[in-house]
Design a protein around this nucleic acid. Structure first.
Lengths: 221, 221
DNA sequence: ATCTTTCATATTGCATACAACTCGTGAATG
DNA sequence: CATTCACGAGTTGTATGCAATATGAAAGAT
């Protein structure tokens, strides 16, 4: 699951540990609140505690695990308020970034188009492939952020989107919502191609608000 | 310099290392691009390489140092574009957060008033005390973010404001700009007390744009 | 002379051993 | 019976030794 962005070298013990633990968390294999014992992880991955510790600290910095002094790390557990906070921030920053990308005219329209098409394909099989959709979706959004030329936005939002990951946003969509979400992506490409800042910003805002509505409904709050 | 937020325990080697290295960077003692050798730091702080490594990784996650595989860590060096990116993001997020705080009405007005007054005091001596001003300022801004109730905003912006730290924003102000900046703080408290979202948001935006103008002028760009 | 190869050195990456700390358990005490 | 204290098992924190990797300079080939 979750293709590895080549910055990681599987032969390195730290990266192996980081990815493995991260996948366990994002896949829901490890429930929130679960303790992550260094010895256990080290034994199960066949490395020593040293790289495990480093991986855990990295994950703590990203907010995926909670670190307690002299007690260890546990999988971060999320509340509805966390989701609320994340979507509030995303719906402020990401539309703005999208507008910036449109105004700058540096977006990689070929890649964006390809990603949007691939998402269409991943959605059509008898059963939509949620893992692939999630992966393509995050790459689509990241490609837009990249086009802003402001790398700080990317790293800031990167840690934000991990929570929706855990909640598996796409599994909350009904067929019509999924179709609408995919349509938004194509509309975003058009807005970027037109270089229309307001249009791009508005579509992205609608896109996120729409997602938030689905997530909120499914959260039962 | 830089009062320690009690989350740190000076008896712990990691925290000692983290704070020490961080202070060296923020104070400008270590120039950008300088290599941070684990052995050197370990020897100079009287601890082993293990906690040094952990501190360096933490600083890397916060963007203060740059880590290169199998080569080590060097002090992150900043360009004008980095400053530009940071201020662009701050002037989007922080005014919004300030408006949120005003609408929420949960701001700790006593503390904010006290901080603003203390900054006035720190600015009046023959020579303004820039270190104290910087410290009080970051606490003032953080107190506003806290009032939003959205903890993610705080941690997000925390990593952003470190760069202006390095650039020692206050040393760029001329006397009139300093006076205006302090006046903004008092006006922010009034806007928050009035619960006026638009007012609070606007003052904060003006506050940041004003700072950006000073910084840009002094950067010679 | 210039380019390539080899090797010494410095540095990080990882494994392991030991120290310090946390917390539950149970005995001792009021 | 309730409370406190002490202790021991389990876990994290730190130190140290060794392996792997990168860099630069010297030697050799073209």
């Amino acid at each position: 699951m979750m293709s590895s962005p080549d910055a990681f070298d599987e032969t390195r013990a730290v990266d192996l540990a980081y990815q493995s633990i991260r996948d366990q968390i994002l896949s829901g294999e490890q429930a929130g609140g679960e303790w992550l014992r260094e010895s256990d992880l080290a034994a199960s991955l066949g490395v020593s505690r040293t790289p495990i510790r480093e991986a855990l600290r990295r994950l703590a910095a990203e907010g995926l695990v909670r670190h307690e002094r002299n007690r260890g790390a546990q999988v971060q557990s999320w509340t509805f308020k966390d989701l609320q906070d994340v979507y509030a921030l995303r719906s402020l920053v990401e539309p703005w970034a999208c507008g910036l990308a449109a105004a700058g005219g540096r977006a990689d329209l070929e890649t964006l188009t390809r990603l949007a098409d691939e998402m269409d394909a991943a959605a059509t099989p008898p059963r939509p492939d949620l893992d692939t959709l999630t992966d393509l979706n995050s790459r689509f959004h990241d490609a837009i952020l990249e086009a802003t030329g402001n790398d700080r936005i990317r790293s800031m939002l990167a840690s934000l989107v991990q929570l929706p990951f855990v909640w598996r946003t796409f599994s909350h969509y009904n067929p019509e919502e999924l179709r609408r979400s995919l349509a938004h992506h194509h509309e975003l490409v058009d807005a970027l191609r037109a270089g229309n800042q307001t249009w791009a910003e508005s579509v992205m805002r609608a896109h996120i608000q729409s997602a938030w509505t689905s997530v909120r409904r499914e959260s039962g709050c």
